[in-house]
Deep mutational scan, measured.
Amino acid sequence: MAAGGDHGSPDSYRSPLASRYASPEMCFVFSDRYKFRTWRQLWLWLAEAEQTLGLPITDEQIQEMKSNLENIDFKMAAEEEKRLRHDVMAHVHTFGHCCPKAAGIIHLGATSCYVGDNTDLIILRNALDLLLPKLARVISRLADFAKERASLPTLGFTHFQPAQLTTVGKRCCLWIQDLCMDLQNLKRVRDDLRFRGVKGTTGTQASFLQLFEGDDHKVEQLDKMVTEKAGFKRAFIITGQTYTRKVDIEVLSVLASLGASVHKICTDIRLLANLKEMEEPFEKQQIGSSAMPYKRNPMRSERCCSLARHLMTLVMDPLQTASVQWFERTLDDSANRRICLAEAFLTADTILNTLQNISEGLVVYPKVIERRIRQELPFMATENIIMAMVKAGGSRQDCHEKIRVLSQQAASVVKQEGGDNDLIERIQVDAYFSPIHSQLDHLLDPSSFTGRASQQVQRFLEEEVYPLLKPYESVMKVKAELCL
């Protein structure tokens, strides 16, 4: 049975990233139509530049190519590739079939990587351009969430054990800070992308030097003109047959890092959902379990974690691919890159769409948070109580021993009897502590235990987050809708 299948058929496997999760716009960027249309555009740009620099290419040939950029006979191309065992030459023939007058000058002087690699770089750039505003929107939604809850005390956790208090907004800023680093890295790697350009079979530009009869300047002009037509500021000066596969490492490393950030955020949300302090959106008709109707599973956060793990592992592909590119190139890269580049971007696209949807509907339960604080705060307040007693004339050592005994009794009630923490009640009825009984409410005010959390939130948002989001103001209103 021949390899390949009808990918629109229910009898043929289709990647869930495309069929179930990723956005239509990201799927289109990695589609065959987008790819092969870009090949034709690159052939047109090459012909236009070659004509401008004096090669015998007519206006009629150029116009014929322009008129057929979208006229792609995919069936013919597939048949040609089956016959020739070469995808680029299959599309040269297919393009030439609908451009008979231009057929002889299509791909003039070029090698397969002229269309293959340059198209990949265009796709990487455009895919990054799709991700950047999506990530900015996630940051914006979380920034709104953090600002609104900047002063809401909550129990902090280290080692997932109760620690000092923080605020809900401050905790959210930990998430935002990681995503801001990801946004900066995505922008950097996007701006650092260079075009492969017009380089020939081993990167020496020998074929173009021959076409222009040894004119170095025209060869350099050709490279520059096509690079500018493709919208790049610069091209690699040095290439082998391909652009260095280190570029793929750079791009997928940034995406993998984004995956790590999203995994951490969504894990926190899942843990908070278990504590009943916070939940992701839950639709009115949504079913959490087929057997347990009360369940409210954090399905979206779980999906993000599941896909983020996949995204983090994909960076190993370009690392290994770059390491086995012998001399000017081997074909070890080809099949692998067809999979890992598309999957990385479709996965990143999915987790950003999902995280935006989550961040637009996060639900906080202040009463649950308050109750958990009441359970733990008495123990945390013991040092403040000791200091207040010393100020009232008591002995630190005597007070410490009193607190120690009462704390152990209260802990026994919590752990052995399943009761509430009654340390404060014990202190309130103990005559030894009568000098500070009137101060206990103040000493137990949760806001006095959150330090500068709310001020940190305000400063972080104003100095770091809002300036970073400013270039994306025009796209901030787009909502994230999930079908599944």
Score class of each variant (00 low, 15 high):
residue 368 V to E: 03
residue 415 K to R: 07
residue 41 Q to H: 14
residue 35 K to Q: 14
residue 45 W to L: 06
residue 216 D to S: 09
residue 109 G to T: 03
residue 398 D to P: 05
residue 269 I to P: 02
residue 39 W to S: 09
residue 250 E to C: 12
residue 398 D to H: 14
residue 424 I to C: 14
residue 176 I to L: 13
residue 469 L to H: 02
residue 481 E to Y: 09
residue 82 K to H: 10
residue 136 A to W: 05
residue 220 E to G: 09
residue 332 D to W: 02
residue 11 D to R: 13
residue 319 L to V: 07
residue 372 R to Q: 05
residue 340 C to G: 09
residue 267 T to G: 13
residue 37 R to V: 07
residue 58 T to L: 11
residue 134 K to C: 10
residue 198 V to G: 11
residue 104 G to K: 13
residue 279 E to S: 06
residue 216 D to V: 10
residue 468 L to N: 15
residue 59 D to N: 10
residue 208 F to P: 00
residue 472 Y to M: 11
residue 293 P to M: 04
residue 26 M to R: 02
residue 191 D to C: 09
residue 82 K to R: 12
residue 162 P to L: 06
residue 90 A to R: 00
residue 37 R to T: 09
residue 457 V to I: 12
residue 152 L to R: 04
residue 484 L to Q: 15
residue 97 H to S: 08
residue 222 L to F: 09
residue 374 R to G: 08
residue 99 C to S: 06
residue 230 A to R: 01
residue 352 L to G: 07
residue 133 P to G: 14
residue 24 P to G: 10
residue 299 M to Y: 08
residue 32 D to R: 10
residue 425 E to I: 07
residue 91 H to C: 09
residue 22 A to L: 09
residue 385 I to W: 03
residue 463 E to Q: 11
residue 212 F to V: 11
residue 474 S to K: 11
residue 286 Q to E: 03
residue 162 P to I: 05
residue 481 E to Q: 13
residue 215 D to V: 08
residue 188 R to P: 00
residue 425 E to S: 11
residue 325 Q to I: 13
residue 22 A to R: 10
residue 7 H to E: 10
residue 293 P to S: 07
residue 74 F to A: 11
residue 331 L to K: 04
residue 409 Q to T: 08
residue 10 P to C: 14
residue 116 G to E: 01
residue 451 G to E: 04
residue 49 A to T: 06
residue 315 V to A: 06
residue 304 C to P: 00
residue 197 G to R: 02
residue 416 Q to S: 11
residue 358 I to E: 05
residue 43 W to R: 00
residue 127 A to E: 05
residue 253 S to Y: 09
residue 63 Q to W: 09
residue 459 R to H: 10
residue 73 D to R: 07
residue 42 L to M: 15
residue 409 Q to P: 03
residue 124 L to K: 13
residue 480 A to S: 15
residue 331 L to R: 01
residue 403 I to E: 06
residue 18 A to W: 14
residue 159 H to R: 01
residue 345 F to I: 09
residue 328 E to H: 04
residue 104 G to T: 15
residue 360 E to F: 05
residue 204 T to W: 01
residue 57 I to A: 04
residue 225 M to S: 09
residue 67 S to P: 09
residue 326 W to V: 05
residue 473 E to C: 15
residue 115 V to S: 08
residue 389 M to A: 07
residue 304 C to F: 02
residue 16 P to V: 14
residue 73 D to V: 08
residue 291 A to Q: 02
residue 380 M to R: 02
residue 154 T to S: 10
residue 195 F to C: 14
residue 65 M to R: 04
residue 340 C to R: 02
residue 103 A to N: 15
residue 145 F to Q: 06
residue 226 V to W: 02
residue 180 C to K: 05
residue 113 C to R: 00
residue 51 Q to C: 08
residue 284 K to S: 11
residue 76 M to W: 11
residue 348 A to L: 08
residue 389 M to E: 06
residue 393 G to R: 07
residue 151 S to T: 11
residue 275 L to S: 11
residue 233 K to G: 12
residue 385 I to Y: 07
residue 332 D to M: 02
residue 174 L to R: 03
residue 146 A to T: 06
residue 200 G to V: 00
residue 383 E to H: 02
residue 463 E to G: 13
residue 323 S to A: 09
residue 76 M to R: 13
residue 104 G to M: 14
residue 311 L to N: 00
residue 212 F to T: 07
residue 159 H to F: 02
residue 76 M to S: 12
residue 208 F to C: 08
residue 179 L to N: 02
residue 91 H to K: 01
residue 289 S to V: 01
residue 148 E to H: 09
residue 281 P to T: 12
residue 132 L to F: 11
residue 81 E to A: 00
residue 155 L to V: 02
residue 375 Q to K: 04
residue 421 N to G: 05
residue 206 A to D: 03
residue 150 A to V: 07
residue 103 A to T: 14
residue 269 I to T: 08
residue 306 S to V: 02
residue 393 G to W: 05
residue 168 V to I: 09
residue 5 G to L: 07
residue 180 C to G: 11
residue 353 N to F: 05
residue 149 R to I: 03
residue 28 F to R: 07
residue 296 R to V: 12
residue 322 A to D: 05
residue 434 S to H: 08
residue 413 V to D: 06
residue 334 S to N: 14
residue 274 N to D: 09
residue 405 V to R: 14
residue 289 S to G: 01
residue 218 K to S: 10
residue 314 L to T: 10
residue 258 L to R: 02
residue 137 R to P: 14
residue 147 K to T: 12
residue 172 C to E: 03
residue 399 C to I: 11
residue 243 Y to F: 15
residue 319 L to P: 03
residue 72 I to F: 10
residue 29 V to S: 06
